[in-house]
């Protein structure tokens, strides 16, 4: 993936490709996580980061936690890779969550590292 980070590419192609290459990062999370992106190019992805390491479109499993954001915000935050910006987005509710927040914080590390590897 070159150029602007694209969430759809990230979850449809890049992360599924990278998961088997870096399984130890994903397995530290050891949970099913939902990604719900709104707006153009949005969608819902289920990341099973337990034993299977699978990314699927749609809510295919019950997530332990879910990240909810507008696609544009989500892409900008991941591309920026700034923890401070992520915190500010969460405080301002541009980045919403439901479920187990500690797991989402662990996921942040994975998404940041995978998006860097993919870009």
């Amino acid at each position: 993936m070159k150029g602007k980070l694209n969430a759809r590419d990230l979850f449809d192609h890049e992360i599924p490709k990278l998961l088997p290459e870096k399984p130890e990062v994903a397995k530290r999370i050891n949970a099913v996580v939902g990604i719900e992106l709104t707006g153009e190019d949005g969608g819902y992805w289920t990341l099973d980061l337990t034993e299977n390491l699978v990314v699927e479109r749609g809510r295919t499993k019950e997530p332990k936690c879910t990240i909810i954001a507008h696609t544009d915000d989500f892409e900008a935050l991941l591309a920026g890779g700034s923890v401070r910006d992520l915190l500010q987005a969460f405080k301002e509710k541009r980045l919403q969550t439901s479920g187990h927040l500690p797991t989402i914080l662990k996921l942040e590390g994975l998404l940041t590292s995978y998006s860097k590897m993919a870009s």
Binding site: L87, F90, K91, K93, L101, P102, I104, L105, K106
Partner: peptide, 13 residues
């Protein structure tokens, strides 16, 4: 409040 939520979650991790 949301700042405390993030940091408390972060501490446990």
């Amino acid at each position: 409040y949301r700042e405390f939520m993030v940091f408390m979650a972060g501490y446990s991790i």
